[in-house]
Design a protein around this nucleic acid. Sequence first.
DNA 1: TTCTTAATGG
Length: 698
Amino acid sequence: MIRKQRERGRKGSPIHIRGHIRLLVSLMKRQILCSQSKALLLLYLYKYKYNNAAALPSVGIRKLPLSAQMGSSATPADSYISEGEDHIIQDKDLLRRTDSGTTGSLHVLEDLVNRASLEADRTLCNKLLNKCTQSGQLKQARIVHAHILTSTFNDDLPIHNTILNTYVKCGSLDDAHKLFDEMPHRDLVTWTALISGYSQHDRPEEALVLFPQMLRHGLQPNQFTLSSLLKAAGAGPDPDDKHGRQLHAHCFKCGFDSNVYVGTSLVDMYARCGRMDESQIIFDALDTKNEVSWNALIAGHARKGQGEHALRLFWKMLRGGFNPTHFTYSSVFTVCASAGSMEQGKWVHSHMIKSGVNLVAFVGNTLLDMYAKSGSIDDAKKVFDRLVRRDIVSFNSMLTGYSQHGLGKETVQLFEQMLRIGIQPNDITFLCLLTACSHARLLDEGQYYFHLMRKRFKIEPQVWHYVTMVDLLGRAGLLDRADKFIREMPIEPTAAVWGALLGACRMHNNIDLGAYAAERAFELDPYDSGPYIILANMYASAGRLNDAAKVRKMMKESGVKKEPACSWVEIENAVHMFVANDDAHPQRAEIYRMWEMISKKIKEVGYVPDTSHVLFFVDQQEREVKLQFHSEKLALAFALLNTSPGSTIRIKKNIRVCGDCHSAIKYVSKMERREIIVRDTNRFHHFRDGSCSCGDYW
DNA sequence: TTCTTAATGG
């Protein structure tokens, strides 16, 4: 009790400062305080501000012309934290120079200056640390920490825990761990703060090893510890559920599994380990669920590519009376983006507008991506323009959109705009930019940006940047330069690098270099069917059927399976899938009849089936028959049967569209007066009035 | 004083 009183009146404590300010104000009112000495008031203001800002106007200090007194170095109390220690020292110097006058207040002031030690009190330190935590200012946190080390409350455990947490939130786990090691005493909060630090900053292994150590110190985890540990268990490089299961047992034993935080973390952990069934069981068993629990489950299905399931859960969540959050919308838009289901995405978008959720980058980026990936680049741009705050991901998403739609000029313009605004590009930005240059035949621009990336932005190109450069050079027909470029790469070329060269060789019919590139690709990744198929097709279309057969045999022997080609088309909120020569579809007969009719009609206006893309069909007529039933053709016939005249048709494909289909779709777009948008593995084709946006360059 | 959920590439 006595100690408490002493502490309350100690110098630096709020009461102490308040008293000083009152005294100073009264001196000032009686004209005893000379003008220079008002600097002293500023010093007190610094301290006072953080204790009770609301009380300031009542003592009239705000009316002081502080900046006039302090010259250009004047610092408003608000910016104390961000300006740091230098200014405090500066103010001290000012104080020393204060009061050369000989007023009767001299003694009083001298006394005050001496007593105005900068030692902070506990409340002030907590507030300062809090502010550092919120704004992530590590440097200031270290200064406050230094003050605390020389203070009388240095052996205080809670304040050390707060510092540790501040370091964590400022992103410096080194500082946090160092403090942890130096601390004379640690409690559960200390351990938990460090564990959660590693887990939040994506260093799961380091979080997990702390757990057994903590147990050895005789501490039992609580809900905070367990949820952090579960997050770490689900985030491992190769998330296995060994840690997860042990933790689950621990949660169960201590009865924490019914806690919302721990329960939700369990749902999330199993979902990240790919065990959706167990995730669902835990979710169902939760007495108390919140939005986060739903989001974790929905995101889990979305990540696993179970889009339909995720959407069903979304509707269920709504029916259950839960309000979707940014996270929910974000997952749902991602699902719609990868399925190319724009109609459902639009519906959810309108739902989001009605619910009043702001179009911030967090959710806007995924919405933008959804429109771009569904083929509507105009809607994507609208979303981009309306975003409340654009971040690097917003720009990257928009750049990706442009580049996939073959809009090279727009990509370059947006990139330049981004630089003007002062947003730092990252490696993904450059990947989009280079891809755009490649797709739009912007050879010089592509090479220029590749150098710029290194020189001006100090971003070391990753293997994917090299792949794109090989693609850029190769597409432009500079096959030898592309080959040389690969040989001069500072990093080892991967199968994808050689694959890019192979693709270019196919485009420019260079079989020898193509065969060489394919060999390298086989060596580096024998399990990818792509290069085998391309090479075999190249041989086949050059009439070298024996060589084609050899490649095919090689592929068979290495046990590679060709991924079946399929196409998807969305009709009235349902996505329909087609495989080549589909014979299981309920509307099969109509679809085939439809295509035969179309085929006949477009042949009359000039369509010539190109059979060079088909392997091993000796007889010309048979070749043509097989060719007719590529999945995108079936999807197109189906869409023509089931949509109203004039409406846009959007088709998604899992491999690159073949030359014959590309040609056929061009004719169909003209004849049927339809806009047809085909999304293949690396770009969009907008067919309109007989031509394609890719300019037959893909 | 300590806790859970999303997004951009090929």
